[in-house]
């Protein structure tokens, strides 16, 4: 696995790291819980046949500060800024978990700017009758066991990069968790369901068959509300972070959808 090419681009929120790798049609990726602290086998698998572009959203590793973000409108505007700055208008878009909630927003509000949309266990909905898990109310070390079928691999994904300063990395990780909380606290419901009727792009919703965070019914409910043609597929032997638990299978499902 080779490293991606890294550039820093100015956005209205501040400087933003963008990773790029691969050739072919563009596909943007909005990362999930914890952001994108390192390049992963999942991104690498996408980059085998696509130009993968990974912007860094505010608060997440490589992203501008999320300090000025006060509400959901600010988040949508910041995500739109990231999309434009990274050159993703008109490209395919993949969003995972918290990044999935924002990817779905952009595809709803700027339907002409997203060609096809792939969501991996997106946040954004809540059902009192079948509440999703509280990813924040976890004992120390409990998050990985909740979200992943391979907790060690997920912990390694979020671990301090080689050569980083421990204190700086603790702060970076804290900022990522604060950014996620800022976006989805307390229920994970961002009101997305009320806007996806504007989403006209063909959409794929993927979810691990052992997702312990978001009930499977959420994917079906979201698919029903989206205006564009939408498929729901499960990834076997995967938890909430299917792209981490089953990177090859998740990438294959997405590429097959984007290329179909």
């Amino acid at each position: 696995m080779t490293k991606p090419r890294e550039t820093t681009i100015d956005t209205p929120s501040g400087p933003m790291r963008v990773w790029k790798k691969g050739k072919g049609k563009r596909v943007g990726v909005f990362a999930g819980i914890g952001g994108q602290p390192r390049w992963t086998p999942f991104l690498d698998a996408l980059a085998d046949s696509r130009q993968v572009i990974v912007p860094s959203l505010p608060g997440f590793p490589g992203g501008p500060s999320s300090d000025g973000i006060d509400g959901h409108l600010d988040w949508i505007v910041a995500a739109r800024d990231a999309m434009v700055a990274a050159g993703l208008c008109g490209a395919d878009l993949v969003g995972a978990s918290v990044g999935g909630a924002l990817a779905a927003e952009l595809a709803s509000l700027w339907p002409d700017d997203v060609r096809r949309l792939a969501l991996i266990a997106p946040f954004g909905l809540f059902d009192e009758a079948e509440p999703m898990a509280d990813i924040f109310a976890q004992p120390p070390g409990g998050l990985a066991r909740l979200v992943s079928n391979k907790p060690e691999a997920f912990d390694a994904f979020l671990a301090m990069p080689e050569g980083a300063n421990k204190m700086d990395w603790d702060i970076t990780s804290l900022r990522a968790r604060v950014a996620a909380a800022s976006l989805i606290w307390p229920l994970g419901d961002t009101g997305l369901i009320t806007r996806v009727s504007r989403l006209t792009a063909q959409t794929l919703i993927l979810q691990g068959d052992q997702d312990r965070v978001i009930p499977a019914a959420y994917s079906k409910r979201l698919a029903k509300a989206i205006n564009g043609k939408t498929k729901v597929r499960t990834i076997k032997n995967a938890g909430h972070v299917a792209e981490c638990d089953q990177p090859a299978a998740t990438a294959k499902a997405i590429l097959s959808f984007l290329d179909s």
Binding site: F136, A137, P139, P140, L174, R177
Partner: peptide, 12 residues
């Protein structure tokens, strides 16, 4: 302890 440290409660 799961309820003791939501993100942002303990400051940088």
């Amino acid at each position: 302890p799961a309820y003791a440290n939501p993100p942002g409660y303990t400051t940088e």
